[in-house]
Design a binder for these strands. Structure first.
Lengths: 194, 194
DNA sequence: ATCTTTATGTTACAGATTTCACAATAAAGA
DNA sequence: TCTTTATTGTGAAATCTGTAACATAAAGAT
C-alpha cells in the first residue's frame, strides 16, 4: 500500500486483505503499542517501522538448511526470502559432495554444523532430512545452539521446552483437505466443524 | 506399533507419541465411535480399520500438483505419500515442455486442467505457482471442480466458503521461529505466550 | 459552535477448547 | 468369589479465543 502511495490504512482494510476481523487487527496492534488515530486510521509508515522493530527486520535474519534432498534444494533455490529479511547462510548434508554444484549457499558436511552455527551465530534451522534421522539431527541442532526448527519430516520431534518446533507435514495437510472434501455434505448445521 | 507386534495401545501411549493429552485422544476417539476396553486399552487393529474408514484409506486418494517449479518438483519426487494412501496423478504448468523429463507423473499444460480434473475426478490440488498468479490459478482450479487446495504461495487466497484452503508459508513460519528466538528471555511469568 | 459521521481502543460477552475430576467397569490377582 | 487395580468415557470447570458492543476522538457538515 505504501508503494501505491497510500499514507494511512484502516483496520478493516488490513482485515479484509489478511482474512482477519478488523477487531482482531486492532487488538493485535494495540498489544504491541501500535496506535492509530480515530477516524484517520493507522499511519502506514509507522506500522512498517514498528513491525520491522518487532521482527528485527533492520538486519538480515540468518537461517540454515539441513538436508539437501529434493525439498532442501527447492528451499535453497527459492528467491523470495530476501523480501522477509531472511537469508539462508549455509546448508548441511551427510554427503555434501554430490550437492555442491549450483547451490547459492555453501554446503557443508554435517559434522561441520556445530562450528558453522556458532561462528555465524545462527538460531534458526530448516530441517529437510528423511523421517528416520530427523530426531537425531534435531538433537545435533539443539546441541549446536539452534533454538527454532522448521521441520518437514512427518514425525513428532521431542525437544526441550525452550526450543520451538514448527512442523509442516504435507501428507497431513493433504489428508485434512481430503477429509473435508469427503465430508462436504455432512455439515447440515451451517457451522464449520472439525 | 502393529508392526512391532503390539495388539493394544493405551490413550497415554498415543498421547505421548503425538504430543497430545490422553484425555484428548480418548475424546477424539469417542467422537468417532472408537471404543476401547477398560483396562485393556484400544485394539490397534480396530483403530487402524476405523481410521482407514474415516479417511477412506481403502482407496488411493488422487491429488494433482499445479506449478512444476522447484517446490512442485520436490513434491512430485517425494516417495512418502503412498504410505498415506495419497497418489499424485498429474502435474500442470504454463510451460510443460521443459519439465517433461524425469517426473514420475504426466505433466500437462494448464489449459488441459479442466478436462483432466473432471476425467480423473480429482478434488484436491497442491499449488506451487508464483505468488503473482496464485489467485488466478486457484480460480481455475475451483472452476474445474477442485474443492481443497494446499497452497505454498505466500499470499491470502480468496475463495468461496465451500472450498478449503490450507496455506503453507515458509517465510511466515521462519518469521515466527525467529520471533520466538529473539524473545526467548521475555517470558518471565513461566507461561507460554505469543 | 454544534451535530453527525467514522474509525479506534477497550471492555464485556459468548463460544470453543482444554484440562480436571471421577464414576463406571473390565481385567487381574488374592 | 472377592478385592484391587488400571484405564476408559464423560460431565463439569477452567481457560483461552473470538465477537460484539460501546465510549471516545477526530473530521467534516450545517
Amino acid at each position: 500500500m505504501q508503494e501505491l502511495g497510500f499514507e494511512t490504512v484502516y483496520s478493516y482494510n488490513l482485515g479484509r486483505e489478511t482474512g482477519v476481523s478488523p477487531e482482531q487487527v486492532r487488538k493485535d496492534f494495540s498489544q504491541f503499542g501500535m496506535k492509530g488515530r480515530k477516524k484517520g486510521g493507522y499511519n502506514i509508515n509507522e506500522l512498517l517501522i514498528t513491525i520491522r522493530e518487532i521482527f528485527r527486520k533492520d538486519e538480515l535474519q540468518k537461517v540454515i538448511v539441513v538436508g539437501t534432498g529434493n525439498m532442501g534444494n527447492a528451499i535453497l533455490q527459492y528467491k523470495g526470502f530476501q523480501k522477509n529479511m531472511i537469508e539462508l547462510v549455509a546448508a548441511f548434508d551427510i554427503d555434501p559432495s554430490k550437492y555442491r554444484k549450483k547451490l547459492p549457499v555453501p554446503v557443508y558436511s554435517l559434522d561441520k554444523l556445530p562450528k558453522v552455527v556458532s561462528d555465524l551465530n545462527v538460531k534458526t534451522a530448516i530441517l529437510t532430512v528423511p523421517e528416520q534421522v530427523a530426531q537425531g539431527v534435531v538433537n545435533l541442532l539443539i546441541e549446536a545452539g539452534i533454538t527454532g526448527v522448521l521441520s518437514f519430516a512427518p514425525t513428532v520431534l521431542k525437544v526441550p521446552p525452550h526450543i520451538t518446533i514448527n512442523q509442516i507435514c504435507i501428507g497431513h495437510e493433504l489428508e485434512s483437505l481430503i477429509y473435508h472434501s469427503l465430508h462436504l455434505g455432512d455439515n447440515k448445521s451451517g457451522k464449520e466443524k472439525c
